[in-house]
Design a protein around this nucleic acid. Sequence first.
DNA 1: AATGAATGAGAGTTCATTCAT
DNA 2: CATGAATGAACTCTCATTCAT
Lengths: 230, 230, 230, 230
Amino acid sequence: MHKQSAALQPHRRLFADRRRNPDGKRGAVLHTAVCMFLERSYGRTSMNDVAMQLNITKPALYHYFRNKEEILVEIYRLGTDLIDGMLDSIEADEKPGLDKVADFIAGYIRIITGDFGRAVIRLDDGELSKAGRKLVRGRKREIDHRVRALIEGGIRDGSIASCDAKIASFILAGSIHGMASWYEPAGPMELTAITAEYVRVLTAGLANGGVAELMQPASLAFKSSARIQG
Amino acid sequence: MHKQSAALQPHRRLFADRRRNPDGKRGAVLHTAVCMFLERSYGRTSMNDVAMQLNITKPALYHYFRNKEEILVEIYRLGTDLIDGMLDSIEADEKPGLDKVADFIAGYIRIITGDFGRAVIRLDDGELSKAGRKLVRGRKREIDHRVRALIEGGIRDGSIASCDAKIASFILAGSIHGMASWYEPAGPMELTAITAEYVRVLTAGLANGGVAELMQPASLAFKSSARIQG
Amino acid sequence: MHKQSAALQPHRRLFADRRRNPDGKRGAVLHTAVCMFLERSYGRTSMNDVAMQLNITKPALYHYFRNKEEILVEIYRLGTDLIDGMLDSIEADEKPGLDKVADFIAGYIRIITGDFGRAVIRLDDGELSKAGRKLVRGRKREIDHRVRALIEGGIRDGSIASCDAKIASFILAGSIHGMASWYEPAGPMELTAITAEYVRVLTAGLANGGVAELMQPASLAFKSSARIQG
Amino acid sequence: MHKQSAALQPHRRLFADRRRNPDGKRGAVLHTAVCMFLERSYGRTSMNDVAMQLNITKPALYHYFRNKEEILVEIYRLGTDLIDGMLDSIEADEKPGLDKVADFIAGYIRIITGDFGRAVIRLDDGELSKAGRKLVRGRKREIDHRVRALIEGGIRDGSIASCDAKIASFILAGSIHGMASWYEPAGPMELTAITAEYVRVLTAGLANGGVAELMQPASLAFKSSARIQG
DNA sequence: AATGAATGAGAGTTCATTCAT
DNA sequence: CATGAATGAACTCTCATTCAT
């Protein structure tokens, strides 16, 4: 019904062979599912849709996953694992906080422009059961705290200007999350160029000793916005 | 079954009095619907749910809206109208581009923390039919272009550092869109304080003559991130 | 697919009319369902089967009942209500315990040879959810206790020989429950004759000291039960 | 997932050793199946459940039985064989009919409190195909006729009061069938005491002219049944 | 002899939508 | 106008059974 990217074709062939390769097949289901969930959303993708894409029947999916939710939870798990791994390696580095933030921006963009990373951002965890939602939101919150800690470290070591770390981390993460919606590999701009631009603007916004301190454009801006609001 | 915010109660009264003007009733449906869609998502909110919340019957909804999609489209229309109006007034101002951007940040936050504004960001336009999707995405794209134009103006008048306006507008909008997900009026931080912080960080990131030019942390950061990527 | 007794035909006509008669239709669903559950068992009767029998579609059933289980629970409720009512009137009488037992035998047979009474005995309450099972089994246990109390009363007033009231009530109830399986109105023997035989044998088994032939408790009991039946 | 009686454990060991005779394995399947069918009903016990309980795979079951129904039919066969055997030995005795009835009561209780005997009573033969149902119901009817003949013999030899033998046999069998539902070995009352009570009440109900207390048919009957049990 | 994999058929349930009143 | 009733289509999930190995 819907045409799918050619990247999913290999999965069909995997299932054509009845020989055992359970892990491979499980992975094929996951990858097919995450692509379809991203394209059509979880709720509008039926198990039948996923099965048909893989050239198998619906009940065959239940060999690899207990139910539809388990597929979604597994996708979230893989995606958050990627992010956790990146944060692990950044935290292990010995660097000024601002540099770590720059590394985070680049690493986060790299992950979020991939299928499983994008899923963590774009898929609606409200579709999950209470238990699944708790699990997934816990992992998201943990990531958020680690990003905040990165910024707090930078404030302590002086590389980042004093600010509300919570808000700053929301700005940082939020602006990158946006990419999950608009970025396309086939787009006109190289990913490295995009990343460089993100790093430049966002580190400039956080860095210590910049215009923020000199010009105080914030209060200025906020006064003018007050006129709009009133 | 689902607890609803107290804000929804007045609408029940509106429908209790059948003599009221239909516009009021239509509006009541829209406001009830947008709240429920935000809480539970469009797909998981049935027409029955909306009707029950309003204390009317399901077919009564079909007096005011041809179908479920029309409700969603109308919500998008109201939300994007708010944003358009704000951009109109900003564009009418005679100010440096950076100040306009600051005004936009404040105005956008104000709208997006309201029900209809948040709906534009949070609701999934993939639920719409092809026609509805085209309409809504067109308006979103238009907004995006106007934000980009704001930044380009700032670059031209020298208040904003030379940068890729498209990327910058994505950073700007994306970071604010995040608020649609996490902001709660009952939260610990005043909206004005949050807004000030957003304005400060984001204008600092864009302003001309700041750290970006002095420290070049971007290239530095990006080199180190390259190690991670490899 | 299966031919159904002609008694169910009126229900079809009830639904043919779209005019309101919700209680009548709910009752029609219940009666149709109980007949089919008895014939084919609950588990092998699909909602579709019930709907088709009533000449409506499956989802229409969900106007009257939240789910399949609610139908079954309601059937149990109606059946146990009948039994409770009979026990109420027997307990209100002023009679020797043995006569009350005789009345119970007659009353229980009358109920259990009807559709809803038979359902209480024959349908498998293991099909119910935990909550439903608890409810139904509670009512069954209560009935059992009341029968036991009847026998204990007879032992106290001397009309029934000293015995284990629990076992005696199981024998009493169990022997009558059997009828739910084999009795057919179209059978060769009159229900009154069957009842008389049950009363005679079972009261003889319980009676204190006397010879069945001398005391004639059966006929005596049956006369009094006739009053209840009428 | 479901807790199973400890009695099922040995079967797992049987399958662990693949060298055992197939009869043993077949028997293990049957015993496991009958226990599960009694606990959860035939319809709610899947072949997977049975296989998992035995620690084998589903297709392995199809080595020993053509299909699920064959398991059920075999269970019925084993159960009815037990009853037939008991009736054989009672019919071979030279005794007054009432004593034979007493022996039957004791023997029937003994069988029906075992797994396969209980299955004959409790499992729903409506789950069987037409052919299987015909077979099983034939054997049940045959048993019924033999019980009826026992009573008719007692009427002829004067030990049982004149009555409708068909009804009397239903009362007899029905009251004992009830035990299949409520009896638990771990219950508060000894099986021998329960049996004695059943024999006393039921023979008193059937006995000719005598007073239960004078003739003591219960103790007499129970002594003779002891021979069968041992 | 025995397994992992796969399937066709069908279950209960939900929902947007439309009649008839 | 507004309602109760009804429907067709869809969805998730289960199960007995059978391949291919």
